[in-house]
Design a protein around this nucleic acid. Structure first.
Lengths: 213, 213
DNA sequence: AAGTGTGAAAAGTTTCACAGCG
DNA sequence: CGCTGTGAAACTTTTCACACTT
């Protein structure tokens, strides 16, 4: 956060609710691992850090599968959320810019765990990045288009410096990337059918700075 | 995003406006470096990626210093925003958890550039982290309280695994930390006078996943 | 003519409260 | 009785439009 997202589509379910659905999904996964079969809005809401009414309203956006007096069936709910978020299949992702931050993200397993697979990385100096020994192959950035098209990749994580950021984005867009998780502190220009989600680390720290007295 | 922030205080200026003020500050800095003396809401808004009316409204929260028919004086505006955000002096920050992500952030210069100084890092295995050779000292996590109190640190970046996260937070809170930038995908429990800003990387990617068709 | 400052309308979100079902 | 589902109310944030100043 903030993180900010542009473009809508796919309709009516509020942006913030989408974030929360992902959180619910995560909590439900944990409940399922613990063998829980049902859960009430109060319990799940507490785990997710929201109010029960909000949870119920959010679930209302994607269907209705609770049993009054009892609660929600964990399994069904998991499947429904997963479908609503389009997270039924493993989604391939590429990472561009294997510098400090990019390298750290290549080792980060949080993405895998949520149904995304970082299939390849690209860098202007692939030899340097490769020296850090990842399981994921680091290609030269010149091979970007070919790879994206061949593997039908739709999502990219962008960790390049500000300078080349926009140019890289233009290339990503031109070969069919539809979603970009952008770590550069810069506003990217993209067509309306491409979604950019900005994660601006310095900004988050600044925001925090405002609240300390 | 998203990122999310709890607690208010200091009042009336909308949370989102605070984020944007930081962005304006950044853009203004660039304008100043280019020798620009004044700027119009239209121009600055474009650079910041917002609508002109929104920019004017945001500035309205912290004062009025534009000249009708002309625009805003870059220097004055920079100073005013900086003061409003409490960013007049360099703010010390500690980082806890020097694993993959933590290490990357220790090398990240975006924080310094925005007026924050990461003064020390803490880890359960400081030797391992130290081997990566940072300019910033990595202490054993047992020295946490002593350091925070001695240096009057108010902000912490948290990159520890989910397991120990809440316990570390309790310790941070107990020794006077007031703001926590949390990278663990977990809801932290803190007293109302402490602000937590969550940066959940997997969540941001998931959100993006929703928008690809 | 150009561009700010702002009240008022619109849009978006959250919370409430309660009817209705198992 | 317990808990879901949801319309309506409350609140927050964005956008508009235009009076006003230089």
């Amino acid at each position: 956060m903030d993180a900010e997202t542009e473009r809508s589509d796919k309709v009516d379910i509020p942006k913030k609710a989408i974030y929360r659905l992902s959180i619910y999904h995560r909590c439900l996964q944990k409940l399922k691992d613990n063998g829980q079969a049902t859960v009430s809005s109060t319990t799940l809401a507490k785990a997710a850090g929201v109010k029960p009414a909000q949870l119920r309203k959010d679930l209302g956006y994607i269907g209705q599968f609770g049993t009054r007096g009892l609660g929600y069936p964990v399994g069904v709910m998991l499947a429904t959320i997963r479908e609503a978020l389009g997270r039924e299949h493993l989604q391939p992702v590429i990472l561009v810019g294997a510098g400090n931050l990019g390298s750290a993200l290549l080792r980060y397993h949080g993405f895998q765990k949520e149904g995304f697979e970082v299939v390849a990385a690209f860098d202007a100096q692939p030899e340097v990045a490769r020296a850090r020994e990842f399981k994921i192959p680091v290609h030269d950035v010149s091979e970007l288009e070919e790879f994206v098209i061949a593997h039908e990749v739709k999502l990219a994580i962008l960790c390049v410096p500000i300078g080349p950021a926009q140019e890289v984005v233009n290339r990503l867009v031109s070969c069919g990337i539809q979603g970009i998780l952008n770590f550069s502190p810069i506003m990217l220009e993209v067509p309306v059918n491409v979604t950019v989600n900005n994660v601006d680390l310095a900004l988050e720290l600044e925001h925090l700075g405002y609240f300390i007295r």
